[in-house]
C-alpha cells in the first residue's frame, strides 16, 4: 500500500510550523500507524533529512505517550483506540493522511508532533492522591469497597493521560481528564477527608494552566481511548458544588 502523508513539521516551540508532504510506499495492512511513520523516518534519515519527531513508548495503548491528530481526529478514525493501536488496515490504499500534533494553548509544541503535557502532571500534583505515608496503611481487607464502586472507580482510573480529550475539545478543556481522577478517588472510601480540597485544588490548577472551559460538546467522550464518559464530568461537578457549598 502507499500513502501521501501531510505531516506537521515544527523545529521548536518558538518557530512557526507548516505541513510537509511525503509519500510512503510498501506499507502493509498489518502494520501499525506508528510503524508506517517508522518507515517514513528510516527513509528520511537515509536521505539525510531529519526524521519526524513523534511521541510514543509502550506501543500497546497504555502508557499514554502517543497522540496524533489524524485526519482531523484525535488518535485517528477509530474510537476507543490510541494512535499506537491504530493499524493500517483501517485506511484506504493511496489515501492522503493529515497528521498534526495535539493543539491546545496548555500543550505547547516541543517539536514536530511532540507536545508538552506537563500541565496534566501539575493538576495531579495539586490533589490527585490520597495522603497516606508508607507504613501507615491499614490491613487491606479492613477497607470494604462495594464491587460496583470499585469497578466504577477502576473505569475512571483507567485514564492514560494522553490528552486526546483536550485535543478533541474546541475549547481545549481538560475537564474529562480532571474528572476521571476526581471520580476515581471520590468513589472510594480512601482519602475521604481530603475529598473537598482535592476537587477545589485540581480545578483551580486546571484553570491556571490555561485549559478552556467545558461547554458540554461531548467531543472528549467520543475520542477518549479508554472510554471515560461524561458521567465522570457530572460527578466532578457534583463534587465541586458540594465542596464549594460546604467549604
Amino acid at each position: 500500500m502507499k500513502f501521501t502523508l501531510k505531516v506537521w513539521r515544527q523545529k521548536n516551540a518558538q518557530e512557526q510550523g507548516s505541513f510537509v508532504t511525503y509519500e510512503v510506499f510498501g506499507i502493509s495492512e498489518d502494520m501499525s500507524f506508528l510503524e508506517m511513520l517508522d518507515v517514513l523516518n528510516e527513509d528520511l534519515t537515509l536521505k539525510g533529512e531529519e526524521p519526524v519527531a513523534f511521541a510514543h513508548d509502550c506501543r500497546e495503548g497504555i502508557c499514554g505517550t502517543c497522540g496524533l491528530f489524524i485526519n482531523g481526529r484525535a488518535h485517528g478514525p477509530l474510537t476507543g483506540t490510541t494512535t499506537c493501536q491504530l493499524h493500517i488496515r483501517h485506511f484506504k490504499d493511496g489515501e492522503t493522511i493529515t497528521i498534526e500534533p495535539w493543539r491546545a494553548k496548555a500543550f505547547p509544541v516541543i517539536k514536530d508532533l511532540v507536545v508538552d503535557r506537563s500541565a496534566f502532571d501539575r493538576i495531579l500534583q495539586a490533589g490527585g492522591f490520597v495522603s497516606v505515608n508508607v507504613g501507615s496503611a491499614p490491613e487491606a481487607n479492613g477497607i470494604l469497597v462495594p464491587k460496583k464502586n470499585a469497578d466504577e472507580a477502576f473505569d475512571t482510573a483507567a485514564c492514560i493521560g494522553c490528552g486526546a480529550c483536550v485535543a478533541a475539545c474546541k475549547n481545549a478543556s481538560a475537564i474529562l481528564f480532571v474528572s476521571a481522577k476526581v471520580s476515581h478517588l471520590s468513589l472510594l472510601p480512601q482519602g475521604k477527608p481530603e475529598r473537598r480540597t482535592r476537587v477545589l485544588n485540581m480545578v483551580k490548577t486546571m484553570d491556571e494552566e490555561g485549559f478552556g472551559n467545558c461547554t458540554n460538546t461531548g467531543a472528549c467522550e467520543v475520542e477518549c481511548p479508554k472510554g471515560i464518559t461524561l458521567a465522570s464530568i457530572a460527578r466532578l461537578r457534583r463534587e465541586y458544588c458540594k465542596a464549594k457549598i460546604k467549604g
Binding site: 496503611a137 491499614p138 477497607i143 470494604l144 480512601q190
Partner: peptide, 22 residues
C-alpha cells in the same frame, strides 16, 4: 502483604468480590 495494604490505602482499585473484599 504490606504492599497490598499500601496500594489499597492509596486508592488502587483492585478487583473485588460482591462482599467488598479483594
Amino acid at each position: 502483604v504490606a504492599i497490598i495494604d499500601q496500594a489499597v490505602a492509596q486508592g488502587v482499585p483492585f478487583a473485588r468480590e460482591y462482599g467488598g473484599l479483594l
